[in-house]
Nucleic acid binder design. Structure first.
Length: 664
DNA sequence: TTAACTGGAAAA
DNA sequence: TTTCCAGTTAAC
């Protein structure tokens, strides 16, 4: 035998002996509850259940429920969470010991574990995937540091709360119910010119006064900043914490710990905060639930509204779905009696804003500003800023001929051309071919123009129409959070409207309302209206709103009447007729054609399921499944079961999305 | 990663 | 029928 080979054999023998020795040296189990039930962090659907491990005596007091641990799982070290400590296991075989307690910090509260299970079930995904959204990565240095002292009492300022909620019925009853420890559920459609961050802050204060915590979730970081300010003003310093996804791992974990340790019970954040481990949770609040930022882009693609509704039900908390507009789903909760409605009466609406339509036919000033809109801007500028909302003109960032504006296409494959960098020649988005010597197919011109975003061209036009007036823009990558209270024209794309510091716009003009209505998207009208409401609501009390468009469009009529509920009701009826959510639960299964076919045969579908497709989708295949919402749970369960069976059989993965936001 | 299991082939 | 072995599977 060669020396090297002999050494290798000796080595492997030594390893085998070590393994035997490890097994022989029985770890002494903890005296009480020596079994830890552990959720392992693995992507396999059929392993989405607790596994039992023996707790060594040295870990008796650190392997607490919620602690992160490492366990030997099929020969590999994997991460997991202890979900429970029990006296005995029903596992018939020998239990392996925990390999290591990563930290005794209980980062997974039982109620969050239960929420993750419910969310995973509803979206036919795994708990491990949900927990990755719910628990931030550990930061050891931060964990070693103390969290802030417990928050003190919060005084309710009844007068300030009443002022913030003025004009909304029955807001006073809702607040009183919160303060008394009750759990009311409401859908709130705010009147224009409402300082909603302050109003929401008062709901948190009232909940806190009942000895409970509150969780507020907003779509983006600009809303986060506004509500953060409002909470500080209403509650004072040191009563709430704002979870910031972009703050970096240390700050993120520090703030998470302040919550999980119960030191802060008023918590604000964006969608991941819906899982925040708030102690004694009494209220969950969601602002603008129609904003698609509330839809999580990572598996299992949960929607914050659904997460919070599940949480409110599981933990018996109050819930407030708030916004200027109203989603069809929120309306469904009102319609079914699950939630009450809080809304302004007609006379309040009339006093807050006058909304009119200017027909785009009658154009006098520039290409896009009819007479009535021009007058409104002019009148508004007399005593304050005017907001002009303009939809994005370019859908895709592709290039066009500088002279005739014909879209620039690749000479090889007719794909759209795109700019790689300022100095590089453009390239084709389809075939990647560089177009160094492009010339326009229509006019022969050799110059290309970058897409003009709506707001910059509109700003130029308005600057010429109203000489001497400052014109500010906000949109795309340059979003302005605030606008001055002095006369100025503020041109913004939808969702990028600056807020006027300490007041509102004298007038709001919505341009080209036909443009977003032309999208094929199922939610085009609902989404357009939501964005108009959000812009129009920035008007000051008594201000004017002008929408440029065709008065026969239903969403424009809803805007003029300021009737989000009526529009949502109409939309709900249409969706019910078309078997679309929320009257139906809908799921898509995407993947290899064979795999998708297999899933459809394997599925134990509830009675009355519609199977649409499969249809080819690129080199993949997609099938849409649809059931009345009463059978929704059964559909989700069946899909989850299929994932487990397929995962156990090591079959190709398919992507399942339950109630996807965008279905085209 | 690896112990337990499976099934098929060789040995008896 | 038993035994052996290689490949597969489940996984505490």
């Amino acid at each position: 035998m060669l020396p090297g080979l002999r050494a290798a054999v000796a080595d492997s023998k030594a390893k085998a002996a070590a393994t035997r020795a490890r097994k022989a040296a029985d770890v002494e189990p903890a005296p009480t509850d020596p079994v830890a039930r552990v959720l392992v962090d693995l992507p396999l659907a059929h392993l989405d259940r607790p596994f039992d491990y023996l707790v060594p005596v040295k870990d008796a007091h650190t392997a607490v429920p919620g602690a992160r641990v490492k366990v030997r799982f099929a020969g590999q070290d994997v991460d997991g969470y202890v979900v429970e400590r029990v006296a005995e296991s029903d596992h018939p075989g020998r239990l392996a010991p925990l390999r290591r307690v990563v930290s005794a910090e209980p980062v997974l509260l039982p109620e969050v574990a239960a929420l993750a299970a419910a969310v995973a079930e509803r979206y036919a995904g795994s708990r491990a995937d949900v927990l990755r959204l719910a628990v931030p990565p550990r930061h050891a240095t931060t964990e070693a540091k103390p969290s802030p002292d417990p928050d003190g009492r919060v005084e309710i300022d009844a007068a300030a709360a009443a002022a913030a909620w003025a004009g909304h019925e029955p807001a006073a009853a809702f607040l009183a119910h919160l303060a008394a420890g009750g759990s009311p559920r409401a859908v709130w459609s705010a009147a224009p010119a409402t300082d909603w961050p302050t109003a929401l802050a008062h709901t948190a204060a009232h909940t806190h006064a009942s000895g409970r915590g509150a969780l507020l979730v907003v779509p983006d970081h600009r809303d986060l900043a506004r509500v953060d300010d409002a909470l500080t003003k209403v509650l004072g310093e040191g009563h709430h914490v704002t979870l910031r996804a972009e703050a970096g791992p240390a700050a993120r974990y520090r703030d998470f710990l302040a919550v999980s340790r119960g030191r802060r019970r008023i918590v604000l954040g964006t969608r991941a905060a819906a899982f925040a481990p708030v102690h004694d949770l009494g209220l969950v609040v969601l602002w603008d639930d129609g904003d698609d930022l509330h839809s999580e882009p990572r598996a299992p693609y949960p929607h914050t509204r659904e997460v919070l509704v599940l949480r409110a039900e599981q933990q018996q908390t109050a819930l407030l779905l708030a916004g200027f507009g109203r989603s069809v789903e929120a309306q469904q909760l009102v319609r079914s009696g699950w939630a009450h409605e809080i809304a302004p009466p007609r006379n309040v609406l009339r006093a807050r804003a006058t909304v009119t339509i200017a027909e785009s036919g009658e154009r006098e000033h520039g290409a896009r500003l009819p007479r009535a809109a021009y007058d409104a801007v002019r009148a508004g500028l007399a005593d304050g800023p005017v907001l002009v909302q303009t939809p994005r003109s370019g859908y895709a960032p592709s290039l066009a001929c500088e002279r005739c504006r014909t879209p620039a296409r690749c000479t090889h494959c007719t794909g759209p051309l795109q700019l790689a960098g300022a100095a590089d020649p453009p390239y084709c988005r389809w075939c990647g071919e560089r177009a160094a010597d492009w010339s326009c197919a229509a006019c022969g011109h050799r110059g290309l123009r970058a897409p003009v975003v709506g707001e910059s061209r509109t700003a130029e036009e308005l600057g010429r129409t109203f000489p001497g007036v400052p014109v500010l823009t906000s949109g795309g990558s340059q979003i302005r959070a605030e606008a001055p209270a002095t006369p100025a024209i503020v041109v913004a794309t939808p969702g990028a409207e600056p807020v006027v510091t300490g007041g509102g716009y004298a007038a709001v003009v919505l341009l080209d309302t036909w443009l977003p209505l032309g999208r094929v998207d199922l939610r085009a009208e609902e989404e357009a209206l939501r964005r108009w409401f959000n812009a129009a609501a920035l008007v000051r009390a008594g201000g004017r709103v002008i929408a440029v468009g065709a008065p026969e469009h239903a969403p424009l009529q809803a805007l003029v009447r300021w009737d989000p509920a009526g529009f949502a009701e109409r939309e709900a009826a249409q969706r019910a007729e078309a078997h679309l959510p929320p009257a139906s639960r809908l799921a898509t299964v995407t993947g290899d054609p064979g795999a998708v076919d297999d899933v459809v045969t394997l599925l134990d579908l509830p009675d009355g399921t519609e199977v649409l497709g499969p249809v080819p989708d690129g080199d993949q295949s997609r099938v849409v499944l649809r059931v009345p919402s009463a059978a929704g749970t059964a559909l989700s369960r069946a899909l989850g079961e299929v994932q487990r069976v397929r995962s156990a059989r090591k079959l190709d993965a398919v992507r399942i999305q339950v109630d996807p936001v965008d279905l085209d």
